[in-house]
Design a protein around this nucleic acid. Sequence first.
DNA 1: GGTCTAATTATTGTTAACATCATACATTCG
DNA 2: CGAATGTATGATGTTAACAATAATTAGACC
Lengths: 200, 200
Amino acid sequence: MPLIPQTVREQVTNQIRNDLLSGRFPAGTMLREIELAARFGVSRGPVRDAFIQLSHEGYLAYQANRGVMVRHPPDPRDREFITELRLKIETYVIERGFEDKSDESVNSVELALERLKEACDSGEASQVAIRDIEFHQKILLACGGDDLVPTWRQLCSRMLLTYTRLGDYSQAYKEHVAIFEPFRDGDMKKTVAAIQANIK
Amino acid sequence: MPLIPQTVREQVTNQIRNDLLSGRFPAGTMLREIELAARFGVSRGPVRDAFIQLSHEGYLAYQANRGVMVRHPPDPRDREFITELRLKIETYVIERGFEDKSDESVNSVELALERLKEACDSGEASQVAIRDIEFHQKILLACGGDDLVPTWRQLCSRMLLTYTRLGDYSQAYKEHVAIFEPFRDGDMKKTVAAIQANIK
DNA sequence: GGTCTAATTATTGTTAACATCATACATTCG
DNA sequence: CGAATGTATGATGTTAACAATAATTAGACC
């Protein structure tokens, strides 16, 4: 496993994203650069960069000269539509690039599956959410879907903001095993079907 | 018309986006913070912010410690799919929020239409592209589609990177008039139909 | 000649100080 | 008393200097 040198900005971004997903910052909260910079022991620069990034990921709403606010989860009426779009993208990318996947990329998906298992075992909702997304993203990247990943990610991210309590994630893990196995074995149809069952 | 105080970052972002759309920076080009900062007569900070933002909009590819590269237009094979997604979002937002639109928002759409006309008259492809997007965005916002605009924008933006030469945009303008008129008069079906005809 | 290593250079990453803006509150004038 | 104006404060916006990283070049060694 390669040592990934993480920049301060990335660490800050990941930490804030994690806090957002775990409900530490409720919707509507104003986030202050100074406050977070102090907490992480860094300057305002990277925090600022993280704000811009997370705004584009859909978690925060940016207002010039006024800072950022934690966005509300999508309107319940929109959730179904967003899910539909997400599924459409995943299906398209997989059907389009299923044959292109390499052994290496299959391995990276398997690694993501292991990380998801750890998160599920821990029972922490925010970690499960992050690893879940990561798993799906690895599959998309394996199928050459780089171009559509940013858009896809934006759709997923917002959905996650919905509060989820601690719980039993053994079922969720099983669903992802059911995605990985046909993916590894080269059965595209079953892979897509398993994903549809997982997301819907 | 309200005076909109534009922050340096916004100006820089807009200028770079415009340059990208007008083909000043070909795909694959590495963009340097220092170079652009010098050109605009500002420091690296806002340029840096603009890079992060434009990366998320899909124009640039970001690599840690290595800077940003101008992305290539989407694969021709993907263009149809992306257009389909874009259309799906516009249709959904309009059908969902058509009744919510206020007189004020109709005015802002009309204003955007006038700006589009100016751009079409000038014949500058990049300006037409920007005003075109702006017009559609105003409609989405008027229908309460704030939540989906960032995602929608990402889809459009990438599409625009395809090189378009100077040309006659009177037809394009007419198509947008055909969108605006039923929109203003409260005819949802015709509005959606006109948009479909315009995008396809 | 080719290749590995070390010094150089150019570029991005981070920081802290300063400038600007928005808000809340106090004050003044009608 | 109420509206408008001025001021204080706390936030973001911007800058320039410094640190760390990646790419490049020069040179030693085989």
